[in-house]
Design a protein around this nucleic acid. Structure first.
Length: 914
DNA sequence: GTCGTCACGGTTGAA
DNA sequence: CTTTCAACCGTGACG
């Protein structure tokens, strides 16, 4: 074939120079083509351009008269070439014959030919391109052929091999992208394969010839053959798709306004929820429904627009950075940790292997808390009794009227505003920061849109020492935001880092722990760790930023000794050393979160200390990684996957959710960390929890069906005021268990298995880039050298969503703690819980979740309960053991065999609200 | 060896 | 008129 090409090129060069006029492309009569005996041998120089014209440039496709130059083979033909020639000649003859038969009305004499011809025509889908009539009837086919003669000339299409015989200098030389593929055939990069080759591919495939053989015969890459044949299988057409152009705009003004309206009415709505509501309300159809990203963009653009509308001078500002921050929690988190003093200086701003303590829910109605200094401080030490603190979890709490004023509140239009009711009860937004204004807040309560704010000059900013540039230019948006938060944290925290406070708090907690209820979990503070953490917080030299919950590699010797005592050693990347803590109920779990692969065991006998029940559960089967439930949630994961079909395997192995690069990284670390043992799960209901993909932007609120439907009680959780009948997962996987849940919110998992995510802890910037980790992927399995899966439990009560992530043995991270708190408070008052709550004045009236206790798993039959108020404790949480503290499974309302009275927390919950 | 997948560099046409 | 962008293309490497 190289010879042919060479000949072609030589002949091309020897041709007369083309005229200045555009040389018309030729679509010669089929007779012309078929008379050329050598038609098939010029495969190597198929002129895609002509075919392209046939596809897209009809204006030239039917103009005859252009001289045809036939390139005769001058080299010896191989058997393959001859075969190809015969094949192509056959095809051309076939089509010509078919056409003539059709035109002569003799189709009845050759019904098989008609069918075959129809197949070819259908595959070519001429009508699809030219808008002609359906080829269903012979007449239509003939008409279509006639029509095509006028527009595109079917002859030219059929005989487009002849295109390769035409060597028009101008066309040839002016068209770029000419290449020779590995088979020697010339192709035009970016342009579709000629139709005749497409037909031949189909024809040969229909004859049973394998794709690889077709590829060789037609000198088309096997990938292309595969693609075309797959397209034919799926669509019945082998035509290329429409190239170029734009899709009809789906984000019409009406849609945009609706989206904004939905978001305004329910700021907690996720994009996909908005999307489904658009469908439900008939605003959009399936064909024109905006994508989730579009919806997010609408919301974001709205925010941007409003932000800019505050001050025209901002037009000059470089708001690109902010524009690039959609209303995405994870992105905001990444943004937050990039703030100085909020993140250790030697920490990478990525979420890589770190606990991100900043949980921002974009709730414009209620505002969102950024962890205050107190919160952050309490991450390293127990709360101080005399201080008015509210929350020590690394996660955030949504603000409430009872919220402690000692909090920084992000509030307003998505991520566009920052409020602070810190001390001076000042609120400032991003815009405010840019225009050096702050909005004062009434009573420290966030009531956006209520009109309770007033604008004051930045000079009145109560935060002492706060400096704001007066320049409205440049990227002040971000800088100011950084500086404000950083400054606040710095100044506030420094004042409260006092030893006596910490000591007092420790003492109090120890007392509390001593009084803990037997039936409830008292996650004891390891004194050494606690001391170590306190030391971290107090000793600037050991922590890059004492205010940051993300601690640098420079752990204090105490901490390191602690690690060592646990049989662990710090062996690698220090950037993920984290220290975090959360507090659930009256307990103060202080968690040292270390990427598990950063440790190697100095003793293989350092198995986690587990209760007898947990120990016994080790013998239980591990959760299947490919559970039926996993399919549903995994379907959502497809959107995250670049791959289209291959990723839908339904497997929920820890690496399935990851990109290849992540997987590779995981593998690369396998030499550091031994493969984790199978996560031993105790599931009372023997159900396999729905896997939850934490990487999803919508945080995976789709509900997967339960393989083993649980008995439903009538005490179901009320649904949203709005609800979508089915989550995407449900749509794809119908389940009897879900059939009666059509009226429930997609957030309602009352009758569905709890969301759970279990994945290997992997450190990967790519993963971070996916915006996947809301809280952490760290695991604090300090007592095990194994690579640990983290486990996330999704507890969803009506519209409330709570995520509980176990990050180690008896270490929890609770996201959306505000909801948890809210639930807890709804269940008040309570004896034990309340009593214990009262022991901590700092938590009083502060909205902290101290009222919530996480019952301790004492044996396999003790099922800790979590629930919400409203007299409908509808969830029980069978525990899972293994590397995790909890697995998850939510059943509805005291399922069989469960005595609510056995759980004080449940009793508490069941009490009528006061 | 086969085949599906996907990154890549390219083209196209509506906005 | 140019630019941008998102669609599509075939190829070829990869597993």
């Amino acid at each position: 074939m190289a010879t042919d090409i060479l000949n072609v090129q030589v002949k091309k060069e020897s041709m007369e120079p083309p005229s200045e006029d555009k040389v018309e492309e030729t679509a010669p009569d089929i007779a012309q083509i078929v008379d050329k005996e050598n038609i098939g041998e010029t495969n190597s120089c198929d002129n895609d351009t002509v075919t392209s014209n046939n596809n897209t440039e009809d204006k030239n496709g039917d103009k005859p008269g252009t001289p045809i130059m036939v390139i005769s083979p001058e080299g010896g033909n191989t058997a393959e070439q001859l075969q190809r020639m015969i094949q192509q000649q056959y095809l051309v003859n076939l089509l010509q014959f078919q056409q003539s038969m059709l035109q002569q009305g003799q189709v009845n004499q050759a019904p098989s030919l008609q069918v075959q011809h129809q197949t070819l025509l259908n595959a070519l889908d001429f009508t699809g391109k030219s808008g002609e009539t359906s080829p269903d009837s012979t007449q239509n086919v003939a008409g279509a052929v006639k029509e095509r003669k006028q527009n595109r000339s079917i002859e030219g299409e059929i005989g487009s091999d002849n295109d390769s015989l035409v060597f028009d200098d101008e066309v040839y030389s002016n068209v770029g992208g000419r290449n020779i593929n590995q088979y020697g055939r010339e192709f035009t990069n970016g342009r579709p394969l000629p139709d005749h080759l497409r037909v031949q591919i189909l024809q040969l495939a229909l004859q049973g010839i394998r794709p690889c053989e077709i590829s060789r015969q037609l000198q088309v890459s096997h990938g292309c053959v595969s693609k075309i044949l797959n397209r034919y299988r799926k669509t019945g057409s082998i035509n290329p798709g429409q190239i170029g152009g734009s899709k009809p705009k789906v984000t019409t003004p009406d849609v945009v306004s609706r989206v904004r309206q939905y978001k305004m009415e329910n700021p907690q709505m996720f994009a996909w929820e908005i999307r489904q509501k658009l469908l439900a309300d008939g605003i959009c159809q399936e064909k024109n429904i905006p994508s989730i990203s579009s919806i997010n963009r609408i919301i974001r653009d709205k925010a941007i627009l409003q932000r800019r509308s505050f001050d025209g001078s901002l037009k000059d500002c470089d708001t690109t950075d902010m524009d690039d921050l959609p209303l995405d929690t994870e992105r905001i988190q990444r943004y937050m940790i990039s703030i100085p003093n909020l993140t250790g200086n030697n920490m990478t701003p990525s979420t890589e292997g770190t606990i991100i303590p900043v949980q921002v829910s974009l709730d414009t109605a209620q505002g969102v808390l950024v962890p205050t200094v107190n919160m952050i401080r309490q991450q390293y030490s127990p709360p101080i009794a005399h201080q008015q603190t509210s929350q020590v979890s690394p996660t955030l709490m949504r603000t409430s009227p009872k919220q402690s004023p000692s909090s920084i509140v992000i509030q307003g239009i998505g991520n566009d505003a920052i409020k602070t009711n810190e001390n001076a009860q000042h609120v400032f937004t991003v815009e405010d920061l840019s225009r050096q204004k702050f909005v004062s807040e009434n009573n420290g309560h966030l009531q956006p849109g209520v009109g309770t704010s007033q604008t004051v000059d930045i000079g009145e900013l109560a935060v002492e020492g706060m400096k704001c540039s007066s320049s409205p230019k440049s990227d002040l948006n971000r800088h100011n935001l950084h500086s404000v938060i950083s400054h606040l944290i710095t100044t506030q925290t420094a004042a409260i880092m006092k030893e006596d406070d910490i000591a007092a708090q420790q003492l109090q907690y120890q007392n509390e722990a001593a009084q803990g209820q037997s039936s409830e979990t008292i996650i004891e503070i390891d004194p050494e760790i606690n001391d170590a953490v306190s030391n971290i917080t107090k000793n600037p030299g050991t922590v890059s930023n004492p205010l940051s919950p993300i601690v640098s590699k420079d752990f204090s010797p105490i901490v390191q000794r602690k690690f060592s005592s646990e049989g662990l050693s710090i062996i690698s990347s220090p950037q993920t050393y984290t220290v975090a803590s959360d507090k659930i109920g009256s307990t103060v779990p202080v968690t040292i979160n270390i990427a598990p692969y950063q440790f190697e065991s100095s003793s293989k006998d350092n198995s986690p200390q587990i209760s007898p029940a947990l120990s016994s559960s080790h013998s239980m089967e591990k959760h299947p990684q490919t559970s039926p439930q996993s399919v549903g949630s995994n379907a959502r994961n497809k959107s995250r996957h670049r791959s289209r079909d291959s990723s839908s395997s339904g497997s929920m192995s820890p690496t399935t959710n990851r990109t290849k690069s992540v997987e590779k990284k995981a593998v690369s670390r396998s030499n550091v960390v031994p493969a984790p043992p199978a996560a031993v799960t105790y599931d009372k209901y023997a159900g396999t929890p729905t896997m939850y993909d934490y990487t999803l932007p919508d945080r995976g609120l789709g509900t997967g069906p339960a393989p083993t439907p649980r008995p439903q009680s009538g005490n179901s959780v009320k649904s949203h005021s709005w609800h979508c009948p089915q989550s995407p997962a449900q749509l794809s996987i119908p389940s009897p268990a879900l059939s009666d849940r059509s009226g429930t919110s997609p957030l309602d998992l009352s009758s569905a298995p709890i969301k759970e995510s279990r994945r290997e802890i992997l450190k990967s910037p790519a993963l971070s880039d996916k915006g996947s980790l809301s809280v952490t992927e760290e695991n604090s399995e300090k007592s095990t050298p194994q690579k640990v899966l983290y486990e996330k439990n999704m507890l969803i009560f009506s519209e409330n969503e709570v995520e509980i992530i176990s990050v180690g043995n008896n270490k929890w991270v609770v996201r959306n703690e505000s909801q948890l708190l809210s639930m807890t408070h709804k269940g008040k008052p309570d004896g034990q819980t309340e009593t214990q709550t009262n022991k901590r004045p700092s938590d009083d009236e502060s909205g902290s979740p101290v009222g919530l206790k996480i019952p301790k798993l004492t044996n396999g039959n003790s099922t800790p309960m979590m629930g919400h108020g409203a007299n409908t404790v509808n969830s029980s949480v069978p525990l899972t053991n293994g590397n995790m503290i909890f697995s998850a499974n939510v059943s509805v309302d005291s399922p069989a065999g469960r005595d609510p009275k056995s759980c004080p927390v449940l009793q508490n919950m069941l009490k009528p609200k006061t």
